[in-house]
Design a protein around this nucleic acid. Structure first.
Length: 400
DNA sequence: TCTGGGGTCCTAGGACCC
DNA sequence: TCTGGGGTCCTAGGACCC
């Protein structure tokens, strides 16, 4: 059986690199990759965490997701730049478009990384390391930032390989290299081994990948149940998942918002929910998808998170239908406590409504869809200006 | 003016049906 | 004539990823 050849390509410090390129283009004199700099959220609206860091900032001990407050303690003259998600999304698409010339089988794994299945292309490219270097250099030339490329026989190992040493490197982790390159690593470095799992493993004296690979299966099962088998497989570098360029079905979309201060006013919370429902149903309609399940997500002032969800008989993407449901869920679930973050999630997505309605109801729905369509057109055209049916404005505007 | 936002997948427990 | 247990669906919550 022929082994597969998978590339994993990961943009180094993507948000910061993209911002650096943007600033240089605008005539900014400094390359922020070469100074202590981070991309950070807005502290005034309580989003002040590190989203990406320059290599210099990394050397000073600054880590992703810590607060800017903590980061500044490590480096008082730290430069902080705001994120620009729209620009990032465009850069991400451009990156993927470019790479798709090398393999038709490409999978976007996140905004700044993807997998390429190079298996079918082996007669075109004899030397994969050489090819990876070529791609890496081309990206630098064309787009102005560096990437890491991992080459392996499956996705898991390609991903682990691209993580080895950064930035601007090509690494391999072929099946025959597992013991030499993967096993010496701390177990926490493994993909899918997060904080919780790592701390349990360490407690039972499993500190390296090799120790996990050789650990007693019964012992692992005691602590991790079914997950034990997966941990074992990962430690041996085993993975047979395919590179797939379509999104998995039954997905979900969600939006959440950290509020500028803790809200206790129900009307204010509802106002946020309206905006979120409008935005998310618009996304659904743009993708021609319908959702069965609706959830409200909360984080209270103690940082406790919880959610309430309900499944509908008929999937929908109508603003009105969704908002009725969101409102109902809110009334049922809001605990009258200060809320730090609120959001909604639509899940069990389908491509058709798969529903049998009476003729009468269908007529009503068609009318609703027309209203939604019109609103989409106006909102898409004028950008962020929200337009709602007048009846809703009446509902949300009469509070203080 | 400490602690983001968007996802996926899994598990436990309750309800319900046969 | 009594009781057990499997299967499925749903909700809540948690771990993990970037």
């Amino acid at each position: 059986m022929n082994k597969r050849i998978i590339f994993h390509i990961d943009i180094n410090n993507a948000f910061l690199s993209w911002t650096a390129v943007y600033l240089l283009k605008k005539g900014y004199k400094e390359d922020i990759r070469e100074v202590p700099a981070v991309i950070g959220g807005d502290e005034n609206s309580r989003r002040g965490i590190v989203l990406a860091k320059s290599p210099v900032a990394k050397k000073l001990g600054i880590v992703t997701a810590e607060t800017l407050y903590q980061a500044r303690k490590k480096c008082p003259n730290l430069k902080v730049f705001p994120p620009n998600y729209k620009w990032y999304e465009q850069r991400s698409n451009e990156f993927l478009d470019y790479l798709s010339q090398y393999s038709p089988n490409i999978e976007k794994f996140s905004i700044d990384e993807c997998f390429l299945d190079m298996t079918g292309t082996k007669y075109l490219y004899k030397d994969y390391r050489k090819l990876a270097n070529k791609i890496k250099e081309e990206i630098r030339e064309k787009f102005g930032y560096t990437v890491n490329v991992g080459i392996a026989n499956n996705k898991l190992c390609a991903k682990m390989a691209s993580d080895f040493e950064k930035p601007d490197k090509v690494h391999t982790l072929y099946s025959e290299e597992i013991e030499e390159k993967l096993w010496p690593l701390p177990v926490a470095d493994l993909f899918m081994v997060g904080k919780k799992t790592a701390s349990i493993l360490n407690r039972i004296n499993i500190n390296t990948v090799e120790q996990l690979a050789k650990a007693d299966e019964k012992l692992l099962q005691k602590y991790f149940k079914n997950q034990a088998q997966i941990l074992k497989q990962i430690s041996w570098g085993l993975d047979d998942s395919k590179v797939e360029n379509r999104r998995p079905k039954n997905g979900s979309i969600s939006t959440t918002e950290t509020l500028p201060y803790d809200y206790t006013n129900k009307e204010k919370l509802k106002k946020i929910l309206i905006q979120q429902t409008e935005r998310l149903t618009r996304q659904l309609r743009a993708k021609k998808q319908y959702a069965h399940t609706v959830a409200i997500i909360y984080k209270n002032n103690f940082f406790q998170e919880y959610s309430h969800q309900e499944k509908r008989n008929n999937a929908t993407n109508s603003f009105k239908e969704m908002y009725d449901m969101v409102l109902d869920l809110f009334e049922k679930s809001y605990k009258n406590e200060p809320i730090r973050l609120i959001g909604i999630r639509f899940s069990d997505l389908v491509n058709s409504r798969e529903t049998q309605l009476s003729l009468f109801e269908e007529c009503k729905d068609d009318k609703r869809e027309n209203i939604d369509e019109t609103l989409d057109k106006i909102n898409n055209r004028f950008g962020k200006t929200m337009i709602f049916p007048a009846s809703l404005n009446k509902n949300i505007n009469h509070q203080r």
